[in-house]
Simulated scan of single mutants.
Amino acid sequence: MRVTGGLLIPESELSERFSRSSGPGGQGVNTTESRVELSFDVARSPVVPEDLRDRLLARLGHRLTDGVLTIAASEHRAQRRNRQAARRRLADVLREAAAPPPRKRRPTKPSRGARERRLAEKKRRSEIKRTRSDGIDRE
């Protein structure tokens, strides 16, 4: 399963568990094990580069249990479709967590025109408030 250009997770690294799902399915909901739990061991996987592993562990810390990321899918009636949905969701979560951090913003100063507009607006508001306190109605 391809996650990013540099990260390819082999099927042998994924483990699946199936269980009975709640939700749609009619009478078959009590007999078919269509819910899928897909697990991937982020902390101990040999295919994840060390620098990427650190980033994944830091960003996914709240979703990991002992370094293992688990995704559950039960929105479809068919086990096959839930397996596809779980794989797609796992790839999306890993792709988002593996994305490099955004570039740091370069601080800038307001332009001369922006400063002048700001001061002009302050003067205008000040004048409005000053005329209110005069008690003079200048319509």
Rank of each mutant, 00 (worst) to 15 (best):
P107A: 04
E11C: 15
R59L: 04
V47A: 04
T4H: 03
T31V: 10
R130V: 01
S12N: 13
K129N: 06
A72C: 11
V29A: 08
Q79E: 07
R53K: 14
T65H: 05
S34C: 10
A78G: 12
S111K: 14
P110S: 13
H76W: 11
I9L: 08
H76Y: 12
L119P: 04
P46A: 02
I9G: 09
R106P: 00
A86P: 13
G23F: 09
E33D: 11
T32N: 07
T4D: 00
I9T: 12
S19A: 15
S39R: 11
K123R: 12
S34M: 10
S133V: 00
A58H: 15
E37S: 11
V3N: 00
R138P: 02
R103P: 07
P100R: 15
V3S: 00
P46D: 00
R138T: 13
R20P: 15
S19D: 15
T65M: 06
R83E: 13
S21F: 09
S21Y: 04
T108F: 02
A85K: 12
T70I: 06
K129Y: 02
V36E: 09
P100V: 15
V36H: 03
Q84I: 13
R95L: 07
E13W: 11
L60S: 11
D137Y: 06
Q79D: 03
Q84R: 15
A120I: 02
P102S: 08
E13L: 14
Q27L: 05
D66E: 06
E127M: 11
D54E: 15
R87W: 11
R106N: 02
R80L: 10
V42M: 00
T70A: 08
G26M: 05
P101M: 09
D51P: 12
G28V: 07
A72T: 10
G113E: 12
T131L: 02
D54T: 15
E11D: 15
D134K: 01
G135V: 05
R17I: 14
F40P: 02
D54S: 15
R132T: 06
V29S: 05
L56F: 06
L57P: 04
T32V: 12
L69H: 01
K123W: 02
A78I: 04
A78E: 13
R35T: 06
K104Y: 00
P100C: 10
P102V: 03
V48R: 00
S22L: 10
R89G: 12
T131K: 03
H76L: 11
R81Q: 13
T32F: 01
V42R: 00
S12L: 14
K109A: 11
E33N: 13
G6M: 04
G28Q: 07
P110R: 14
I128F: 00
R44I: 06
K104D: 04
T65G: 09
G5N: 03
D137L: 11
R44F: 01
K104R: 07
G28H: 09
G28D: 03
L64R: 07
F40L: 13
A72K: 12
R130S: 02
K104I: 09
K123V: 05
R53I: 09
G26P: 08
R118L: 09
S74E: 08
R89W: 07
A73L: 06
V47E: 03
S45N: 02
V68C: 01
K129H: 03
